[in-house]
Design a protein around this nucleic acid. Sequence first.
DNA 1: ATCTGTGCAAATAGTTTGCATCCTC
DNA 2: GAGGATGCAAACTATTTGCACAGAT
Lengths: 138, 138
Amino acid sequence: MTWAQHAEEKLDRAGYRSGGARRQVIELLGTERCALSALEMDRRLAAGRASIYRTLEQLEQLGLVQRVDVGGEAAGYERLDPSGHHHHLVCRQCGLLAPFADPDLERAIEAISGATEFEVDGHDVVLRGRCPSCQDPS
Amino acid sequence: MTWAQHAEEKLDRAGYRSGGARRQVIELLGTERCALSALEMDRRLAAGRASIYRTLEQLEQLGLVQRVDVGGEAAGYERLDPSGHHHHLVCRQCGLLAPFADPDLERAIEAISGATEFEVDGHDVVLRGRCPSCQDPS
DNA sequence: ATCTGTGCAAATAGTTTGCATCCTC
DNA sequence: GAGGATGCAAACTATTTGCACAGAT
């Protein structure tokens, strides 16, 4: 079952109704590889901005989507499927966003989570620098 | 030499002039333990909001201050002294921000930085969950 | 004396909300 | 047919910019 189908089902079970805007947002998120801002979605979809934000909020609350804050002006949103857990590399120059995953990093975070007094249930890691194309050849 | 003195000096050397707003922002950042939002500073200082933002921008560009984006509405700013490198725990419920540091985590990040094609020069880690006081005993 | 820092107010950008209408169940 | 979903426009919040003036060098 695709993530999009899973998402539709979970929303239905949560008592939400289906509509055109929601369907479009879910389909788009289902095919994107990495985070997308709400405004980017607005540009690409034939749906009202408000409906996009409302759908994203529902998806986030059900744990279907993760909001990722890489420091730009707009927040990014990406689907959250357990097997695809990853973090982000951000180019300071062009803003390029690239995903990466690393087991050692996850282990270190788990260790910290167990040692702190906080009840940790999530984490974000962002590495910043220059992407290959912005590394000046001069 | 305190961080505040060092910051003033570096700004002077960069050609900026000293003024009341800048001094206040630097003094406040010098005494705070963790990140503070620009609006919080505005509330606490007798300085114009615009000047606060302008000072923060200068400080950030000189590497004296780090902007930290923990996902709330406003961005946080905290002084950046090499010996005090740390990351953040954020309470989902009350927004409490707590710093932590971990050598294993840093090692894992260094390893990733060396292995990627990006030229990595910085990173942020945010752990999310519930702080001790928000962990409901009921 | 010059030229930058400051602070007010207006402008912007992202996000949220109010409300009339459309569509799903 | 009832009630939630949608989309427009207005409201809001954080941040930036324009400009006149005060203050630092």
